[in-house]
Design a binder for these strands. Structure first.
Lengths: 151, 151
DNA sequence: TGGATATTTATGGGATAGCATGGGTTTTGG
DNA sequence: CCAAAACCCATGCTATCCCATAAATATCCA
């Protein structure tokens, strides 16, 4: 299972290409599809990124919603309907579609934020605010990691 | 499970490299990823160090949250997004990123402090102050070890 | 036990390969 | 036939590899 860690800031060139961090590519080396899957975040001006194989896990979790429920439909529409599959070029780059770049407010510096089994892409400047917010939430709500059951 | 004990002080060279104490490396010899994971301590001017497998454990626990939930997002952003993955070189060293060194105030002498399943990296001088403080707390508040349940 | 020899560790520095980035060229498809 | 996308090659920088040394530790054998 891929595990994405740390934050890498890479430049978007005028063709819309960005290097996917080498560390992230390593985590994806065993994947059948050599590339990433992206869609708009539901909560932030950012993009959610996954390994192709993880989309199956998302599908499985969506089935936990009531079939035909409004929520299931909405999620499925945004997640599957609007996701894009981006293949690496020979240098490990992907081309960010313009509409996704605009959605995330990515200008020139794209920040890849590792979040475990997924990652996010932020505009580098915008990310700082998000960071402070996340830190505050963790502290104020006293969020901790439950021991839970192994998945 | 790795068990980090005692304190080792090693030098940071001008390339930013430090030898990870051999005792610590021994504890990590069974790890799939040969290296360490670091992030900023929330409580001290120091860095927290873990084995890769420990991050996998955290990742598993995060999977118990709903996908895209705010809690999952906040935790992952602070824990995974702000961590770095550092591989050993042939001599068992890692390169400390400059921003992390600055955060911990590490100048030249890095102190590796074993804390059980994790360890901390302090500036050697700063650590002395922390030590006296910790001793005083234990004495004044009469801290003891609870029997507790095994984790 | 003791003293000589071999390993391991921490450290230093030069050589090398990999990564991020840029630009040109061919291919594709509408 | 033209534009956009995929492919290919070039480059500077940095991280990684590799070798060397000294000190500390461990090992061995008489």
């Amino acid at each position: 299972m891929a595990l994405f860690l740390s934050t890498h800031i890479n430049k978007v060139d005028k063709k819309g290409r960005v290097s996917v961090p080498a560390q992230f590519r390593d985590q994806l080396s065993a994947e059948a599809f050599q590339g990433i899957v992206l869609f708009r975040s539901h909560a932030h001006p950012a993009l959610e990124g996954f390994a192709w194989s993880y989309m199956e896990e998302i599908s499985r979790r969506l089935e936990n919603f009531d079939l035909f429920s409004a929520e299931q439909d909405d999620l499925a529409t945004t997640v599957f309907g609007e996701s894009v599959q981006l293949a690496f070029d020979g240098e490990g780059r992907v081309v960010l579609p313009v509409d996704l770049m605009q959605f995330a407010g990515v200008v020139e510096q794209a920040a890849f934020v590792g979040l475990g089994n997924k990652f996010q892409i932020w505009d580098a400047a915008e990310l700082e605010k998000r960071r402070t917010e996340a830190r505050r939430n963790v502290r104020d709500k006293n969020l901790t990691l439950p021991k839970g059951e192994a998945a």
